[in-house]
């Protein structure tokens, strides 16, 4: 898929999410894990959403995921060549996140639910790197 990174909506990190975005710059997909109940969670927050414990650790995710669901948007978007897919992936660690799927045709025939994916980082601008995903075996 073709993305005009200049037109991508830029996320604005907050103090609670800064580790995630600096992780992307470092090529790491950073998640958080509760020091008490061991729950791994996302999106970032400085306490465990499963048990409320405040002592949590940043862990490095494997970057492995599967395609959970998606839509293929046919309406025009300033950053994307339509049609393009918007997906939800489930990471190996069990959390879900939204992403685009790179290096694959944006069609129902090519995008098969549960297909194995891996994280693919792309620098957009202003020091922001976004985590995208691509099929395992696709080149980047």
């Amino acid at each position: 898929m073709k993305i005009d990174f200049e037109q991508v909506t830029v996320p604005v990190p907050t103090p609670e999410t800064e580790h995630f975005w600096s992780g992307c710059v470092a090529g790491e997909l950073r998640l958080q894990q509760c020091d008490d109940c061991s729950d791994v969670y996302f999106p970032p927050r400085p306490f465990c959403p499963a048990c409320g414990h405040r002592a949590v650790s940043i862990i490095r995710g494997s970057g492995k995921a599967r395609l959970l669901s998606y839509v293929i948007n046919h309406r025009p978007h300033p950053a994307f060549d339509s049609p393009y897919a918007i997906a939800v992936v489930e990471l190996e660690e069990g959390v879900t996140m939204m992403a685009n799927i790179l290096n694959v045709s944006q069609t129902p025939e090519a995008l098969i639910l549960d297909m194995p994916l891996k994280v693919a980082f792309r620098s957009i601008r202003r020091g922001i790197v976004l985590p995208y995903f691509e099929p395992v075996g696709a080149g980047s």
Binding site: P43, R75, H77, I86, A99, L130
Partner: peptide, 16 residues
């Protein structure tokens, strides 16, 4: 808002 969790973790991926 771009600093909200949805703004950070969903908006960049082209949702309309």
């Amino acid at each position: 808002a771009p600093g909200s969790l949805a703004g950070q973790f969903e908006s960049p991926f082209g949702g309309m």
